[in-house]
Design a protein around this nucleic acid. Structure first.
Lengths: 203, 203
DNA sequence: CGGTTGTCGTACATCGGTGTTCGAATTAGT
DNA sequence: ACTAATTCGAACACCGATGTACGACAACCG
């Protein structure tokens, strides 16, 4: 009979309180830093978290795993936020609602998606990215069917365009070209116009 | 009386034939490489040009100067191409024309602008960039005045949006989401819609 | 044909970023 | 108050990219 002589390492990954607090700080700082510059160094992230670089490596195996975990948390929260949006009723009104929610997420996470693209395995990134886009699809398809949105362009192009407008607004705010308070209105006005079917009149 | 004993170095920077050819190759290769990946290494550029890395450094002081020269040439050619576009007549038709010219440039130069942003002094980049944008301004202002384009959004936002749509199309083609042949039509259809004044009907 | 001009490969110094090791000091938890 | 966990800085090895130095070789041009 085999004698299992080693202790099964406690399944509960309960670290000490300060360790957990530091992990939290690191994740938050990494999110903020990567949202601004997807190539930010580990040293800068550690500094922003108010923690030593070595401590950071004590909690995260490598830069890649840190980025991956940060991205996964952001994706989770984004998916949750988008899932909470009411997509029923008038498609144009629903579009406004999901645009506003997406704008908040874009402001929060900014260039994080670029970091994700570079640090995560291509497949995995594609998967989570497509998962987020799927939050838009039902609304877009319904609006195209009932004539609220134009359907003379590929759906994929329209989805790409949506992201592009959000990203453009983020950059414009960052560069000070527009006020953050005005951004939501500009985004909505622009996207609604771009999706209006040819021949229709837009209020 | 001073005796100028040294030869005035020939003002004509006439290098040898093969040297000039190599410089050309390097500039072309650098343009193509940087258009795809703004962070491409000097070694890769040299390889793409069919030339040794050392040879490259013989002609360009540093990576930065190479990028700067490539960017300056691209800017010159872009400015020329945009300047040749007829901006008269119906603003919407003129918009279609300048959009098509800009799309060709975007395809050609792609991410070169990102490399420029990283490698050039901020002021200089801003200057050339604004110079290019100014090619659009007169048309946009005229169209806003005569009611062809909506003027309920800041002009700066609309210009940002234009670039954003071009960039999005470039990415979509690169990722295979849309056919290059269809891109021009999608861009025009999208931008025209986005610029249509509220309450107006678009053909 | 011969000297000048370029080219090329290799090797080297340097720089910045990543990831590791160590030991000393500190702090949480009991 | 005692132990174990955690932090921290400094130092190190490593990697990839930039930029330089040298010397052999090839090609242009007169």
């Amino acid at each position: 009979m085999l004698d299992i002589s080693w202790e099964v390492p406690a399944v509960t990954t309960l670290k000490r309180a300060d360790a957990r607090k530091n992990i939290e700080s690191i994740m938050d700082a990494a999110t903020a830093c990567l949202a601004r510059d997807p190539d930010v160094s580990v040293a800068d992230i550690a500094k922003a978290a108010g923690v030593g670089r070595v401590t950071l490596y004590g909690h995260f195996e490598s830069r890649a795993t840190l980025v991956t975990q940060v991205v996964e948390r952001a994706i989770r929260q984004s998916d949750e936020a988008l899932g909470a949006v009411d997509l029923g009723g008038d498609p144009r009104a629903a579009l406004s609602r999901i645009l506003e929610a997406s704008w908040r997420l874009t402001q929060q996470y900014g260039a994080l998606i670029v970091a994700a693209e570079q640090s995560m395995p291509h497949e995995q990134f594609q998967a989570v990215h497509l998962g987020l886009i799927d939050r838009w699809k039902p609304l877009m398809e319904r609006g195209r069917r009932d004539g609220s949105f134009r359907d003379d362009q590929p759906l994929g192009w329209q989805l790409t365009l949506l992201q592009s407008v959000l990203h453009a607004a983020s950059g414009a705010v960052y560069r000070g070209e527009i006020e953050a308070a005005d951004a939501a209105g500009l985004i909505d006005g622009t996207v609604q116009a771009a999706l209006t079917p040819p021949g229709a009149t837009r209020g």
